[in-house]
């Protein structure tokens, strides 16, 4: 077993997902805990060399990249084969990955190939008897569990925003090393026929501020929808105006827009925005819940936010129990006023 920690950097078109650098930060923490182990990163896909180059500035000691025609699009089997091969060669103490969709999947696959186990979606790491003792949430954050992996390498995925991104040191640099693809095209069982990027914006998992709306966002009798809409369409139209208003507030704060399941199920906003047990679990610095009652399944997705603000007409809404600040009132008058007030104070 070498004295190395391997970090997989999840990237898309030459840009690392922010959670990847956080995983690198967690990796550096582990090299320190292990008393000066070295930190190796692996990046795969198109333009992975650029990202591997950046990794030095984030603190990597060594950076490997795999750029090959068969790896141009992410395909789980092809990427997992590269990761597994590198992990076999390096025999690291631990492999860290961000808990992104790709990171989770690659961790899952390599745990089988490497006959080890995963410490999945962890929020804290320490060392005990030479092994990583990780903390993770279970039952949607209603309980915590300590977990240990008894095999090597210990495969770990880090939860977004749970670990600090290392500070960039522009003075550091290095030469990334290329590693080859492992599977030939004929051995890859899948083919990407097309892909479509969603409309940009800040992704919920990475957002420092989230402004979320619930069923209450449709509740503005003063808005008159264009003629020709039936009741359901008019309701959705109203809600969409409301979500635009929440978008303005999020815009001033550089944040993202979230939603309750009720809002998603009613067709007000796409599922990608759903926060909660069956949506995304988020922990921004600031979470502003507008017209959300605060059902236990919604709380499961946002309760670890640093500061929670609730705006709701109903003083009895359970969301107020979680909130640092609460306002009882109509979101349609309060949200635009808050947007203005913050715009002034932030000089935007």
């Amino acid at each position: 077993m070498s004295n190395k920690i391997l970090v997989y950097i999840d990237q898309y078109q030459g840009t690392a997902l922010p959670a990847s650098w956080e995983a690198l930060g967690a990796g550096r923490m582990l090299t320190n805990l292990y008393g000066g182990a070295s930190l190796v990163v692996l990046v795969a896909g198109e333009r992975s060399k650029e990202v591997a180059g950046q990794a030095f500035q984030y603190g990597a000691d060594e950076a490997l990249f795999a750029d090959h025609a068969t790896l141009a699009d992410y395909r789980a089997e092809a990427y997992a084969a590269v990761l597994v091969k590198v992990a076999r060669e390096l025999a690291p103490l631990a492999v860290l990955l961000p808990t992104t969709l790709r990171g989770r999947e690659l961790a899952a696959m390599s745990a089988i190939d490497l006959d080890s186990g995963i410490l999945a979606d962890v929020t804290a790491l320490e060392l005990q008897d030479g092994k990583v003792l990780a903390t993770r949430q279970i039952y949607a954050g209603k309980a915590l569990s300590k977990v240990v992996c008894d095999a090597l390498p210990q495969i770990i995925t880090t939860r977004g925003r749970a670990f600090e991104k290392p500070t960039v040191d522009p003075a550091r640099s290095g030469a990334p090393t290329q590693v080859p693809a492992v599977l030939a095209e004929a051995d890859i069982p899948t083919k990407i026929l097309s892909h479509a990027a969603a409309d940009g914006g800040v992704s919920l998992g990475d957002a420092a501020v989230i402004v979320s709306g619930g069923r209450g966002v449709a509740n503005n009798p003063n808005l008159s929808p264009p003629t020709g809409l039936d009741d359901k369409q008019a309701e959705i139209w109203r809600a969409q105006q409301g979500f635009k208003m929440l978008g303005d507030l999020a815009g001033v704060l550089g944040g993202a827009v979230g939603a309750s399941r009720a809002a998603v199920d009613a067709g007000y906003i796409p599922y990608e925005h759903q926060v909660g047990q069956t949506g995304k679990v988020v922990s921004p610095n600031l979470y502003i819940a507008c017209g959300i009652s605060g059902a236990i399944q919604h709380q499961a997705g946002m309760r670890s936010s640093k500061v929670i603000v609730a705006i709701n007409k109903d003083p009895e809404a359970p969301i107020f129990k979680l909130a640092r600040f609460g306002v009882v009132g109509d979101l349609y008058t309060l949200v635009p006023a808050l947007t203005e007030a913050l715009r002034l104070r932030l000089g935007k």
Partner: peptide, 15 residues
């Protein structure tokens, strides 16, 4: 390969 040596309640948030 994975063990769960401890489960805990989440820290109570003093809000």
């Amino acid at each position: 390969h994975i063990r769960w040596p401890a489960v805990m309640s989440p820290p109570v948030r003093d809000i």
